[in-house]
């Protein structure tokens, strides 16, 4: 008997603090699997952001620092500049990255900072209990857009990959999803490529992962997955937006 699937080494034994059916757990596992496969656990530094994943330094078995809300890309820049041999990644939600940290993510990308950003987009503020996020869809009801997001009042959702794609800087931008096994495999490939680019010093890589938030969407885990497919993916198309230079070797 050969082990086909097991808990990656880059995850601690800590139980995830996420809600049932939340995709953070899947994404954490993919990042950890990639860290294992690239054999970089001793040099990896996780820069945690503020949101549901704020305590992910309890789950990733790597060095880690917890950055102020929105500032993870800046903190990661500091780590990478001071310790260039480290593999530095930030793990941020849409409130952290696309609201509080918009300047930080744009400038880190424009500098083509050699860090990897795992950006989880669930179109809502999870930790604080379901408020509207910059990625909340038009018409989507949240605790702070109770009548549904109205462009005239609350403006329009931000497509981060497309936004960053207008910059010369970034080396790699891809949007993926984890709503079924096929897409989980695709997402892992993207995360792996992002980390590989950093290992090769190619610069800024960001993988935007569409993610379900059953609790705050008030949907079951399964219904949330349908919502990802029907609604989220309609506004946030999956695909590779930027890919500077090929990554040699198996993807």
């Amino acid at each position: 008997m050969e082990v086909v699937f097991q808990r990656p080494q880059a995850l601690t034994e800590e139980k995830f603090s996420y809600c049932p059916g939340c995709h953070h757990g899947i994404i954490h596992r993919l990042v950890a699997e990639v860290i294992d496969e690239l054999g970089i656990i001793d040099n990896t530094v996780c820069v945690s952001s503020v949101g549901c994943s704020v305590v992910n330094y309890q789950f990733f078995a790597t060095d880690a620092i917890q950055a102020a809300h929105g500032r993870a890309p800046a903190a990661a820049t500091g780590v990478k500049r001071a310790s260039p041999d480290s593999i530095v990644f930030t793990y941020q939600g849409d409130g952290d990255l696309a609201a509080m940290g918009t300047a930080e993510i744009i400038h880190a990308a424009a500098r083509n900072e050699n860090i990897t950003v795992v950006f989880v987009n669930n179109a809502i503020y999870g930790m604080t209990g379901g408020q509207m996020a910059p990625t909340t869809l038009k018409g989507q009801k949240t605790t702070t857009s109770p009548y549904g997001r109205d462009s005239k009042r609350e403006g329009n959702p931000i497509r981060v990959c497309e936004l960053l794609n207008s910059l010369d800087g970034p080396a790699y931008l891809e949007r993926v999803s984890v709503h079924d096994p096929k897409h989980v495999i695709r997402a892992k490939k993207a995360i792996k490529k992002a980390f590989q680019l950093q290992v090769k010093g190619r610069g800024f890589s960001l993988v935007e992962v569409l993610s379900a938030c059953p609790t705050n969407w008030h949907l079951s885990p399964l219904a949330s997955i349908e919502w990802v497919q029907k609604e989220l993916m309609a506004y946030y198309p999956l695909g590779v937006f930027r890919e500077a230079g090929e990554v040699d070797g198996e993807c």
Partner: peptide, 26 residues
């Protein structure tokens, strides 16, 4: 040495935070 002009003082102090965490004098 590494000199970096940040996009704002907010970003700058958080870069300092990251670099300090590696034990560097920043």
């Amino acid at each position: 040495g590494v000199y970096l002009q940040a996009e704002s003082e907010v970003a700058a102090i958080n870069m300092v935070y990251g670099a300090a965490a590696t034990g560097a004098r920043v």
